[in-house]
Simulated assay, not measured.
Amino acid sequence: MSTTTGLDHLGASSYSLDEEESEFFKAETGIHDDEELRTHIVAVQEKAYKVHPYPCIRRFAFTKLKIARLPGYEQLLKLGKERRGAIFLDIGCCFGNDTRKAIYDGFPIEGVIASDLRREYWDIGHELFKSTPTSFQVPFLQGDIFSPTFLSPSAPLTTPPSTSAPPLSTLTTLTPLHGHISAIHASSLFHLFPESLQLKLAHALGSLLSPLPGSIIFGSHGAAPIKGVRVREPGEQGEYRETFRHSPESWKELWDGEVFEKGIVEVFTELREIQRGDLGSGVGDGANGRTAYWLLWWVKRL
C-alpha cells in the first residue's frame, strides 16, 4: 500500500483495530474488507494531519473508541434513555468518531450536537464515515469556546432554565444552551492549554451543564501525579513545547469548589500510566523519559 509522499513518518504500520473497533468502523463506513478499510482510514489520517499535525491523529487515536471506555459513558447512555429531551455535546469533536459511537450505542440522534474549532475535521469525518450532512444530521458548530461571541460567560445554573432549549439545528453559537446540556464529552482537549485557559474552559463547560442531578461532564486528557508545567510534547515543527498538567487532586479541586460551589458535584478521577513510544527520550516522565499519564474523569451534578 502506498502512502502520501513526505508523510511516511505518520507510521501507517501502527494502525490496528480490535474486534469492537473493527465492527464499529465496518458498520459505519459500509467497508467490510479489512485491507480496504485500512487503506481508507490511513488515507483519511494523512489528509487530516495536513490540516493540523496533532499527535493523536498520527497515533490513530480516532480509531480507539475512547468515549466508550470512559467511566462516564454508561451515565451518558442512561441519560439518553431516561431523561426526556436529553442533550449531549461532544466538544472538541474532531472527526466526530465519539459522537457517532454514542449514537451507535443508543443515544438519540436528535439530542446530539458537536463542536470544534476547525470545521475541516468534521468535514473529513463525513469522508471517513462515508456520510453527508443529509445522511448524518447532527448539527455541528464551528467556534472558539473561549470567545464570548460563541459562548457568553455565565455561572453554572442552580435551577433549571425557565425556557426550553431551542432546536439544535437552529443554533449558531453555544450560548442558548446555558444550563440545558445533560452530558458533555471533552477528551484530548484540556491538556492543549495552559493552566489559566484550562480553568476558563472548565467554567465554560460548567455553565452549559444542566443543574438536574446526574448531569455529567466527562472525558480524558494528559495529566501528572503532581500538577505543574513539567511535561513536554512535540510541537508542530518537531520542536518541544512545555505543557501544563493537572494532577487528580488539583483536578478535583478545580471542579468542586472553583467551577461549581463546593458540594454540589461529585468528581471521579483515575490516573493511568502509559508508555508512549512516540516520545523522544527524556520528553515524558519516568526513568526512560517515555512514560506519560492519562486522566480519566467525570464531574456529576448531585
Rank of each mutant, 00 (worst) to 15 (best):
E273K: 11
Y293Q: 02
E236I: 08
P71H: 13
C93N: 00
D116A: 04
G125R: 01
L128F: 05
A165S: 06
E82I: 10
A224G: 08
E82Q: 14
G214D: 15
S14N: 04
I57V: 05
G125F: 11
E253T: 15
F268W: 09
Q137W: 05
I87H: 05
T132G: 06
Y73Q: 07
L7Y: 07
F136V: 03
A48I: 04
Y293I: 10
L37T: 00
I113R: 01
D105G: 00
L174S: 11
S210V: 00
S162I: 14
E74I: 06
T4C: 11
Q198E: 10
G6W: 11
A224F: 15
K66N: 14
E28T: 12
T29Y: 06
R245D: 05
Q45W: 02
P55R: 01
R301M: 08
D33Q: 07
A223F: 10
P248R: 06
T149P: 09
G289I: 02
E28S: 11
S152T: 08
F107E: 00
A114G: 00
D105M: 01
S154T: 10
P156E: 09
E233D: 03
G280N: 06
P225C: 01
L177C: 15
P53K: 05
H185F: 15
T159L: 09
G206A: 12
L177K: 13
S162R: 12
D98M: 02
L79G: 01
S182R: 04
L189Y: 15
I216F: 07
A165R: 02
E35L: 14
P133N: 08
I184C: 12
